[in-house]
Amino acid sequence: MGKIFDWLDSRFGIKEPHKRFLQRRLPERLSYLYCLGGVAFTLIIMLMLSGLLLSLYYVPSEHEAYQSVLRITREVRFGRFIRSLHKWSANLLIVFIILHTLRVIIHKAYRPPRELNWVVGSLTLVVAFFSGFTGYLLPWDQKAYWATEVGTSMAATVPVIGKYLLYMLRGGPEVDGTTLIRFYSLHVLWLPLIMALLLWAHFHMVKRQGISGGL
């Protein structure tokens, strides 16, 4: 294993920069509170892997979405497990991002030079919320439908542009097959891509700025 990796590395040269990052010395005062962000990132990795698996069976169509979700839970081996993993990781992700945010607030780690990283982190939370909201529609059952009906109708309360915002979100005046495809695309393509870019920026800044002094 090591030999194969060394052979690759002699051409690819990826070991050294990672060693510098992964095996760097950390200040002694760190506690487990500093792991909250890492836990959130682990959950995102689990979400991406379980989501990739679910996408093998899910059909984003008005007529087949619900059936395909039933098929995943009833027929596919480990289907119920993978779907539950995706669901619970998603719930816990929000919890852990908020805990991580609280840690950053309490330690005043948002202060300069880290303001931009605070902004990027907040955007990550927003993207996580949107992923949760769009993913909630995908089972295409009554709960999903009405949650989206109510959720998207809030957009209509925005002054002046509310109506257009609503049509943009739903792809029409009603929640229907068009909305399902829209939400599916956002959920599996747009939002994960945005999330990956944001996290790359987030980690890059952590690496450059180091871990904040704390209280």
Binding site: L49, L53, L56, E75, V76, R77, F78, G79, F81, I82
Partner: peptide, 12 residues
């Protein structure tokens, strides 16, 4: 995880 993924992906 890899094994579970393979078993999941194999048609039931």
């Amino acid at each position: 995880s890899g094994l579970i993924a393979l078993i999941f992906a194999y048609p039931a």
